[in-house]
Amino acid sequence: MSDPTREPIPPTPAQTVGPFFGYALPYTRGNELVEPGTPGAVRLHGTVYDGAGVPVPDALVEIWQADPAGAVVARSGSLLRDGTFTGWGRAETDREGGYWFRTLEPGATEPGRPPFFAVTVFARGLQDRLFTRAYLPAADGAGHGVDAAPGVGGPGAAAPGAGAGAGAEAAGAGAGAGAGVGAGAAARDSARAGLLETEPLLASLEPERRATLVTSRETDGSLRFDIRLQGGPQGEEETVFLTYDPPRAVPAGAGAGAGATAANASGAMTSGVAGTRGTSNQPTVNERGSYPIGLVPSQGGIDA
């Protein structure tokens, strides 16, 4: 079992969450990681859009985050919601495609790195979950978001505060502690200035795509994070979705068609190879980079 050369077991394939998870997966206060009025509470909200810019009313969004000190929480109680902060929450989208969480802003889990919510998205029509990150905003001295400039307000972008649907006002009132953008939030946003530019993942992206991973600070102090499953003529407004697997090879001669096929298959790059953190021992194109179709490096036997 500890034999490093042991063949990994093929993973069980994913299948879509389908249309009828709504009576099964969402649960009472699943989206409320903290109670109303909790000091530091913030509302994280947004809208999920499809490729036509139409809100997706049957998506499920999960967040997993560090606590404000940057510690990874290992406490049960997410389904119970007895006041224990567990760092995990689940929200279904409403009829307008909106979702919201009441939570605490995560701290950096490693010094000098910008904090983020790890976000997982499920939906009818989506064959496998999608991972992404929602970074906390960074602001310049004038309080302007530095990374939220181009591309954020794409077609169909909801008016601030309008997209989260029923219950949003109540959550906002609780989360904002009645103070709008508090000085604390603005100061924290300012303190993060510069962190986003140096984050390797963000730095590897074109500016308009980078913006899809950064929350925007609304005037009421809440954080907005819209999710676009597709978007823009060249996909430039599509939210950047992540794979944590090291890049896998398309053997030379397999052809661009086969390469494209593999790249678009969920799990095509998931052979279950065990590894420690990082991919420095992998023949990656670029440890920051994405994998242009047909340009992934050659590597033998993906599933011999």
Binding site: G125, R133, N264
Partner: peptide, 29 residues
């Protein structure tokens, strides 16, 4: 070509997937 372990995201026979799958490759992190 490599063996695929999971479902295709871009899979038109499942009609609901057409506007709901990412068109870009997943980005490595």
């Amino acid at each position: 070509a490599p063996r695929e372990h999971g479902p295709r995201r871009d899979w038109p026979p499942y009609r609901s997937s057409i506007l709901r799958h990412p068109t870009k490759d997943l980005h490595h992190a």
